[in-house]
Amino acid sequence: MDEARDLVNRILAGDAKAFKSLVEQNQRLVSHIVFKMIPNETDREDLSQDVFMRVYRNLGRFEFRSKLSTWIARITYNTCGNYLEKKKIPLYEDLAPEQKTIDSCAGANPLPDEYTEKQEISDRLREEVDMLPIQYKTIITLYHLDEMSYTEIGGIMKLPEGTVKSYLFRARKLLKERLTARFQPEELWNPNT
């Protein structure tokens, strides 16, 4: 926390290197959220840049009540939420049983023959995650890629801890079912494939 405080103070004093360091430390986290929440690929980088500009503009108000990264993630989530609202893309959706899958999705390209089985599984999983409602895939990303706790994720997305856990479990169960519908179980865990 002291390191974060020092970094913030240096940025507020106008230290460009300190701000660059903050961006480099957190751009991975920001990109995880932006890439999962924003369907339009061309807007992602601009939106990520907008997030850091907001971070910079509001840094003086950060009170160190949470980790700096959690605060940045919250700004990212809110920025993406505003974007989706403008584009009239629903943020809140439930996992419906008839939720479309990759197989039913027009435009899903067949995987190239030269792909190995493992790459195919990995690509398929990524595509299946992308097909989930925004909140579910954001929770999955924050939990598995950024290793955040239920409490931290709940703080970022303004959801109760129990809801975060429930969404996470339901999404993973659904993903497992979709993978097993496409692949033989042995293909999934055999390290030689």
Binding site: M53, K176, W189
Partner: peptide
């Protein structure tokens, strides 16, 4: 084992790359 495979896939951080000079652009 299925879940282990799933967890492993979900922890794959590929495909989230911003441009190389992203931090410079922001600064």
């Amino acid at each position: 084992e299925l879940y282990k495979c799933l967890y492993s896939g979900l922890s794959d951080g590929a495909g989230y790359e911003l441009s190389v000079d992203f931090a410079d652009k922001v600064v």
